[in-house]
Computed example of a mutant assay.
Amino acid sequence: MRYAKELNIKPGKAICYSGFREGQRPGDVFPSYEEIKEDLLILQNEWTYLRLYDCDKHSEIVLEVIEKENFNFKVMLGAYIGAEVNNYGCPWGGAYPEEQLELNKVANLRQINKLIRLANRYPEIIFSLSAGNEACVDWTDHYVPVESVIKYVRMIKRETKQPVTFCENYLPWLDKLKHLVDEVDFISIHTYPVWEYKNIHEAMEYTKQNFYSVANKYPDKLVVITEAGWTTYSNGKGICPSNVSEEHQTIYYNDLMDWCEEDAVMTFIFEAFDEPWKGSEEALEPEKHWGLFKVDRTPKLVMSQRYKEHLI
Rank of each mutant, 00 (worst) to 15 (best):
I42E: 04
Q44L: 11
Q44D: 15
Q44W: 07
Q44M: 12
N45F: 14
N45C: 15
E46S: 13
Y49V: 09
R51C: 09
L52M: 07
L52R: 01
L52S: 03
D54T: 00
C55A: 02
C55W: 01
C55H: 00
E60Q: 12
I61T: 14
V62K: 02
E64M: 13
E64P: 12
V65C: 06
V65G: 03
K68A: 14
K68F: 06
E69I: 03
N70A: 03
F71I: 07
F71Q: 01
N72I: 09
N72F: 04
N72W: 03
N72Q: 09
K74S: 07
V75D: 08
M76S: 09
G78M: 15
G78V: 01
G78W: 07
A79Q: 14
A79E: 14
A79G: 10
Y80N: 06
I81D: 11
I81S: 08
G82R: 06
G82F: 05
G82K: 07
A83W: 09
A83H: 09
V85T: 13
V85E: 11
N86W: 04
N87M: 06
Y88Q: 12
Y88V: 06
Y88K: 02
G89D: 11
C90K: 04
C90H: 08
C90Y: 08
P91D: 10
W92F: 09
G93H: 05
G93L: 10
G93C: 07
G94C: 13
G94Q: 13
A95Y: 15
Y96D: 14
Y96P: 11
E98L: 12
E98N: 13
E98I: 03
E99S: 09
Q100P: 04
Q100H: 03
L101P: 14
L101K: 05
L101Q: 05
E102A: 03
E102D: 06
L103P: 08
N104F: 02
K105I: 12
K105R: 14
V106F: 06
A107W: 07
A107R: 11
N108A: 07
